[in-house]
Amino acid sequence: MPEVFEESIEIRKYIDLNKQNFEDSLLLEAVNVKDKIKEIEKYGNINLINNAHKLIGFVINGKEKELEDFAEQEGIAWATHALTLSFKLEWIQAIRRTLWRYIQKYYEQMKNVSLEELFILEKQINNRIDKFLNVFFIIYSKYKDKLIKEQRELVENLSVPIIPITPSISILPLIGTIDSMRADILEEKVLMEIGNLRIQTLIIDLSGIADMESDVIHHLIKMIDGISLMGCNAIITGLRAEVVRKMIHLGMKFDKNTETLGTLQQALYQYIGKI
Score class of each variant (00 low, 15 high):
208 G>D: 03
144 K>G: 05
186 L>W: 04
105 K>S: 14
16 D>H: 10
14 Y>W: 01
195 G>R: 10
247 M>S: 13
37 I>G: 12
20 Q>V: 07
256 K>R: 10
159 S>Q: 12
56 I>Q: 01
216 V>C: 01
206 L>Q: 06
18 N>A: 03
212 M>G: 12
195 G>E: 10
226 G>M: 00
261 L>F: 03
242 E>D: 09
117 E>G: 15
125 I>A: 12
59 V>E: 08
225 D>L: 06
14 Y>G: 00
224 I>D: 02
142 K>R: 14
80 T>W: 02
137 F>N: 04
133 L>C: 03
142 K>P: 14
245 R>L: 05
217 I>V: 10
169 I>R: 10
268 L>W: 08
224 I>L: 14
72 E>D: 11
157 N>V: 00
66 E>M: 01
212 M>C: 15
17 L>D: 11
216 V>G: 01
101 R>Q: 13
265 Q>S: 03
221 I>E: 08
265 Q>V: 05
268 L>P: 15
247 M>D: 11
237 T>Q: 05
141 S>W: 07
91 W>Y: 02
40 I>G: 03
168 S>F: 06
126 N>G: 05
39 E>D: 07
117 E>D: 15
266 Q>G: 13
243 V>H: 04
254 F>S: 02
135 V>F: 02
39 E>N: 06
244 V>Q: 04
160 V>M: 07
74 E>T: 14
261 L>I: 01
13 K>N: 14
220 L>V: 08
34 K>S: 09
105 K>Q: 15
28 L>I: 04
12 R>L: 05
26 L>W: 05
254 F>M: 03
110 M>E: 15
63 K>H: 15
106 Y>R: 06
98 T>E: 07
219 H>Y: 11
12 R>Q: 04
168 S>W: 09
120 I>K: 13
